[in-house]
């Protein structure tokens, strides 16, 4: 094994790229869970977003339109979950699983004619001057725009939850839906909007995989990224800044094992590929999760 072939600057730079899809999906799920809804369908929404974004980007030639298409696709799929759990009061765990199974089938069907095609190029953004700084330049300022969109979304969600009135309402609905309802807030409406935001973010995360990171369409390409995003929300104790940390941690594990594979480590490829999943389990065990939102996973039905 040749460890010297691993360039630490490139490693950290690719870590930021590897973390982005998980970060995007996780920040959406964080908002959903803060509103008191447990949507286990992240994986299904991500893969649907991946194929929606890919189809739009290939047909229009514009990755940006692809990302918009992915967000819309993810949001529409999540609305299915929203209608079932919020209006028809179905079990959220079971419905989330159904969404994942459904999304995997749907994406495979939609993506049939798109296997083996290359996505249109999504050029990196070289921030002028700043990207020329040694070490920090390549790590922080030479990425494609979605990396910054992800970080911006985390910051925006943090500010929204902490400082805005709407964020307060959302948290109230998540902590105690009965009380929020008694105060006159529309629990179902808030939750539906949160679910759609989560779907859109998961769609973006999926599209980042199919348009930037791979960049191709293959069936089942998310390979558990949606589930890892769910784990990161728990790891982050439902707080946006810790989510950023969690996403980078997992990005780091993923990139490191890929680099070790490329460097020809003595451990088998299959065992290295297990690393992100084992790291997820280890983190779930070590990190005692903070307090979950009070009404997480419970159906709300206003009885009168």
């Amino acid at each position: 094994m040749d460890l010297s072939s691993i360039n630490p600057v490139l490693l950290v730079a690719s870590l930021m790229v590897a973390a982005t899809p998980i970060m995007l999906a996780a920040i959406g799920e964080l908002v959903v869970e803060r509103a008191g809804v447990l949507n286990l369908g992240v994986e299904g929404m991500m893969i649907t977003g991946a194929i929606c974004g890919f189809i739009v980007a290939v047909n229009t030639g514009s990755p940006w339109l692809g990302f918009i298409g992915a967000a819309i696709g993810g949001a529409i799929l999540s609305l299915l979950f929203g209608v079932l759990t919020q209006l028809l009061l179905s079990n959220q765990v079971a419905t989330g699983l159904a969404l994942t199974l459904f999304g995997l089938g749907l994406s495979a069907l939609m993506g049939q004619g798109y296997i083996g095609i290359k996505a249109p190029a999504f050029p990196d953004w070289d921030v002028p001057l700043l990207s020329d700084i040694p070490v920090i330049g390549p790590i922080v300022f030479q990425h494609d725009p979605m990396v910054y969109v992800g970080i911006f979304l985390v910051a925006a969600v943090w500010a929204f939850l902490k400082y805005s009135r709407a964020g307060l309402v959302l948290r109230a609905v998540g902590e105690n839906h009965e009380a929020a309802h008694a105060l006159g807030y529309h629990v179902i409406r808030v939750r539906l909007l949160a679910i759609m935001f989560g779907g859109a973010c998961a769609g973006l995360g999926g599209a980042y995989l199919s348009l930037v990171r791979v960049p191709q369409w293959t069936e089942g390409m998310t390979a558990g990224a949606g589930w890892i995003a769910l784990a990161i929300v728990v790891f982050a104790s439902w707080r946006p800044w810790r989510l950023l940390l969690g996403a980078y941690l997992f990005g780091g594990v993923t990139v490191l094992q890929l680099n070790l594979q490329a460097a020809g480590a003595a451990i088998g490829v299959a065992y290295l590929s297990m690393a992100p999943y084992l790291a997820t389990i280890a983190v779930l065990v070590i990190m005692r999760a903070g307090r979950a939102p009070g009404s997480l996973g419970q159906s709300f039905h206003a009885s009168r």
Binding site: L80, L84, A94, T95, L97, A98, L99, L101, F102, G103, L104, G105, L106, A108, L109, Q112, E219
Partner: peptide
């Protein structure tokens, strides 16, 4: 297409 069956099964659960 084979994926249509997978979709059908997911639909059933929904």
């Amino acid at each position: 297409p084979g994926a249509a069956i997978q979709l059908l099964q997911g639909m059933l659960l929904f």
